[in-house]
């Protein structure tokens, strides 16, 4: 499941996800793979910034390293 290039661009959350915030952490469930992920505060912040898609947010400005990690987990996809 490689082949998703990290870096700037527009990203959106993958389909079929459920999540719940606990303090500043996040637990995300991916119904396609059946995997459950615990996101650290840093990742949680980026993930949530992508959520109610504000078309004005240029996701390329977000933490690229985190986006790369989220993409590898299949939680975000390039638009």
């Amino acid at each position: 499941m490689s082949g998703i290039a990290p870096g700037p661009g527009r990203w959106r959350p993958a389909a079929g996800l459920l999540w719940r915030s606990f303090d500043d952490e996040l637990v995300v469930y991916d119904d396609r793979s059946g995997d459950t992920h615990r996101l650290t505060p840093r990742s949680a912040a980026v993930f949530l910034a992508l959520q109610p898609r504000d078309p004005m947010i240029e996701t390329g400005t977000l933490d690229a390293e985190v986006i790369d990690g989220l993409a590898r987990l299949g939680l975000v996809e390039p638009e």
Binding site: R20, V27, D31, R38
Partner: peptide
Amino acid sequence: QSKAAAFIELATNAFNYSIHGKRGFTVVA
């Protein structure tokens, strides 16, 4: 204990968390 960590441990200790899919996630959450 961090609640997110407790979530993962509880789900890991559940015999049928994965069987229940979305519903299992919601119940544990």
